[in-house]
Simulated scan of single mutants.
Amino acid sequence: MEISKKAKLEKLGWKIGTTSEFLNLTPSEDQYIELKLALSKSVQKKRLEMKITQVKLADILKSSQSRIAKIESGDKSVSIDLIINSYFALGATIQDIAKILYELPKDQKDSKHKDKKNPSKLLPV
């Protein structure tokens, strides 16, 4: 966000913060979300690299295309187990999972879990 825009908004009573701050997430909740989103995006990236459709992946997993879409978006109804099983079905290895874990933010203040369109979330005071 541009500094001038941020200053104007703060002057009007808005507070700039992260999604974690807005939702009042604990550090463990924030880390869980980071992990789930990283795994979900890795499934999508691997599927696209392999040039297969969500329908084809659904066939492999004996699931539905809509379920694959939920897996790739990190939908709250999808378990981490299902995400990891989907990733392995695409040929990923434990080393691939380890790399994802290694690349996660090390603590909450380094978290990337912010508003997708705007890295600074506007919070009314």
Results as ranks from 00 to 15, higher is better:
D30S: 13
T53F: 04
L39V: 08
P105L: 00
G91Q: 07
M1V: 08
G91M: 04
D115L: 06
S66I: 12
A38H: 07
F22D: 05
A98T: 08
A38V: 07
S63M: 03
I52Y: 04
Y102I: 11
L25R: 03
S63Y: 07
I71S: 00
R47Y: 03
A58W: 05
S4Q: 14
L37C: 09
L104C: 02
I68R: 01
T26Y: 11
N85L: 05
T19S: 12
L23V: 08
D81P: 01
N118T: 09
G74C: 04
L23C: 10
S111T: 03
K41I: 11
S77C: 06
P124E: 05
Q108V: 14
I60T: 12
A7K: 13
S77L: 09
K121N: 10
E103R: 08
F22Q: 08
L90F: 02
S120C: 06
P27H: 03
Q44G: 08
L25S: 04
E2K: 07
A7E: 13
S40A: 15
L57V: 05
S73F: 06
H113N: 13
D75R: 01
Y102F: 12
L82E: 09
P27G: 11
L48Y: 03
E34W: 08
E72K: 00
Q95R: 01
K121D: 05
G13S: 08
V43S: 01
E10K: 08
S111G: 02
K106R: 07
D30P: 02
L23D: 11
M50G: 05
K6I: 15
G17F: 06
K6V: 15
L25W: 06
I97R: 01
T26L: 12
K45R: 15
L48P: 02
L35K: 11
L57Y: 02
A98D: 07
K62H: 10
Y87Q: 00
T19F: 08
L57M: 11
A98H: 04
K99M: 08
L123K: 03
L39T: 04
I84H: 01
L35C: 09
E21R: 05
L122R: 03
V125S: 13
V125N: 12
D30H: 07
D115V: 02
T26D: 10
I84Q: 04
M1C: 10
L12H: 06
P27S: 12
A69E: 01
L12A: 15
A98G: 02
S111K: 01
P119T: 09
P27T: 09
S79N: 05
L90N: 00
E21F: 10
K112E: 12
A92G: 09
I100S: 00
K114E: 09
D30G: 07
I68Y: 06
K76W: 13
E72M: 04
Q65N: 10
K15N: 12
K36L: 13
S111N: 00
T19L: 15
D59E: 14
P124R: 06
L48V: 15
Q44E: 11
R67L: 12
A7L: 14
L48S: 12
E29M: 05
T26E: 13
D75P: 04
Y102L: 11
K70V: 02
V78N: 00
L35Q: 12
P124A: 07
I3V: 14
S40G: 04
K56S: 12
Y102P: 00
